[in-house]
């Protein structure tokens, strides 16, 4: 099967799945408990990895911008540059990439294992809908958790970049904080925050699509898990470009 054929099949499959989610989302029964479980699994259980990623991002950004700008006597612009980079791009995209690996891979492996052991067929045979029981709770869990994990990531990055600036760049905490937040426009924040909903959806839909399309062969689980992570990462990159372009056209220019 050619790459083009696979890509078209993926786009078609994801579109059908999206349509089915939209149709079944509004009909009873609503599985609130399953959605809350997913929020716990995706949101709460991901905080340690987001903490580590965000802390190191804050440290690195501070050092890179600080020492580079210092050469040109522009050290005081460091907080402003870090805040723009963090809110608009780095926090949403890094968080999405990390979660595409942790959450996306986990979801795909779980769903595809259910597929190969005929548990998905059993749900259907028992007169229930796998879209309602498997897909919708994961998509909702993802869309409701990932934006908040991104906010958490921003907060941790701020703390660690501020600490680095104080101890390595001799910028006081008060100065860093006022310059970090002073010129952050609502639009900077919103442009990044809006992206997180899209990224969250792409991670979950890709994981559910590949999980549900796993073959009965055992090697199918590993194969679809890899495909899900690769596809969601590519979609994050492409959608980031498209959304950034749209935001610049509309507001940020």
């Amino acid at each position: 099967m050619t790459l083009i054929h696979q890509t078209l099949q993926f786009i078609f499959g994801v579109s059908i799945l999206t349509k089915n989610i939209w149709v079944e989302l509004w009909s009873k029964p609503f599985h609130l408990r399953l959605t809350l479980n997913q929020i716990y699994e995706i949101g709460y259980k991901s905080w340690p990895i987001i903490f580590v990623t965000a802390a190191s991002t804050g440290l690195v950004l501070s050092l890179q911008f600080g020492f580079t700008l210092e050469k040109y006597g522009l050290k005081m612009y460091t907080p402003r540059l870090i805040s723009i980079a963090l809110f608009r791009e780095i926090a949403p995209v890094f968080t999405a990439f990390v979660l595409a690996g942790r959450v996306g891979a986990g979801m795909t492996a779980e769903i595809s294992s259910m597929k190969v052991t005929q548990q998905i067929d059993a749900i259907r045979a028992l007169g229930s809908s796998p879209i309602k029981l498997i897909v919708i709770p994961r998509v909702l869990g993802s869309v409701l958790s990932i934006p908040f994990l991104t906010l958490f990531s921003c907060a941790i990055s701020y703390v660690f970049s501020a600490l680095t600036s104080v101890y390595q760049l001799d910028i006081s905490i008060g100065m860093f904080t006022s310059r970090f937040f002073n010129k952050v426009l609502l639009l900077d924040f919103l442009s990044g925050f809006t992206k997180t909903f899209v990224f969250a959806y792409l991670i979950a839909i890709s994981a559910c699509y590949f999980g549900m399309s796993a073959s009965q062969k055992k090697e199918g689980v590993g194969e679809v898990t890899t495909l899900a992570v690769v596809s969601s990462s590519i979609m994050i990159v492409i959608s980031d470009f498209v959304l950034t372009w749209i935001f610049f056209l509309l507001w940020l220019k």
Binding site: T117, Q118, D121, A122, A125, L126, G127, S128
Partner: peptide, 30 residues
């Protein structure tokens, strides 16, 4: 097909039990 599946049951060859649920919850599911 959901209404058909309520009157036509299919017993899977290997059981196809939900691995994350106990036997009780598997039976209680339908």
């Amino acid at each position: 097909f959901i209404k058909v599946r309520k009157k036509v049951a299919y017993a899977f060859q290997g059981g196809a039990l939900f691995q994350s649920m106990t036997v009780y919850d598997n039976l209680a599911f339908p």
